[in-house]
Write a protein that binds this DNA or RNA. Structure first.
Lengths: 141, 141
DNA sequence: GGCAAAATCATACTTTCGGGTGATGCATTC
DNA sequence: GAATGCATCACCCGAAAGTATGATTTTGCC
């Protein structure tokens, strides 16, 4: 953090210096008006690029830090119930049917029933493919 | 695609128009030099931001399109062989043992043997957890 | 050539999955 | 009150996955 602040400060100082320098040359008429304008244009283009990068960098960071936004639309259109989603989530964590049953306090048979429904609704036949599809549909993280 | 080209063309046309307009006002001395320079500065800042966004957008796309950079360090430290990695990759695609055997032209028994080794090396006991761990270790995409 | 590691395959056995069927209880809805 | 959807559980069966053990071949290396 301290390093970042220092770098920003340094860049700002250099920027101001360059502007002052160009203005000085302009004032004592070493450079002409068109050259001055071109210099300003280049300088502010660079500034703009820098700003743009900062903005997009921050926005991309935000999207990475977003925990997880479930695709409720897909879930409803597929008709996947609350409990089925619970099971699906544990599936995504790589748990076995028995483990899922223990964590949800239900029988392993019930887990199987829920999974059968999920497989049908996702149109798959294996847990690994169900996880793949559910993840691509943003049903699970 | 056609739409994009059209939008870019329109933006370019408007930009040129604005520059021409400002220059015209400057020439007939409706606006003074400092105002002209500020206008140019603002214009090129906007241009810079736009450029910056374009650049970062492309770079972020690149990072998404980067095929996959395997973590060779982790692989070596775990002692996972070439063939085991082949099997692991197919595992990550959600294939069954039989499918993996067919694709690699080996017996299903061999697939099982390789998988047993992989499970031991990754310290897991199920294919789903192996996939999870291998992915987190950047052994597979 | 001989050794070690990797790759291949087989056999036998246990566990886990997945599909099918049916049943019960509970809440909502028509 | 009948119908519907959801959640729960059970039993059976076959397929797939995983474990253990041993054997053979291939390959790279000293």
């Amino acid at each position: 953090m301290k390093k970042t602040v220092f770098i920003y400060g340094a860049i700002l100082a250099i920027g101001v210096l360059v502007v002052e320098l160009i203005e000085h040359f302009y004032t004592i008429q070493i450079i002409s008006t068109p050259v001055y304008i071109v210099a300003v244009a280049i300088l502010f283009t660079v500034l703009g690029i820098w700003l743009g990068k900062k903005l997009t960098a921050r926005s991309s960071q935000d999207s990475e830090n977003t925990p997880f936004k479930r695709n409720e639309k897909a879930r409803k259109s597929l008709g996947i119930s609350d409990r089925e989603l619970d099971v699906l989530e544990h599936l995504g964590k790589g748990h076995s049917n028995q483990e899922i049953a223990n964590k949800l306090f239900i029988s392993i048979n019930t887990v199987k029933t829920h999974l059968s429904s999920v497989y049908q609704k996702l149109e798959v036949s294996r847990r690994s493919m169900a996880v793949k599809k559910a993840r691509s549909l943003k049903l699970i993280p």
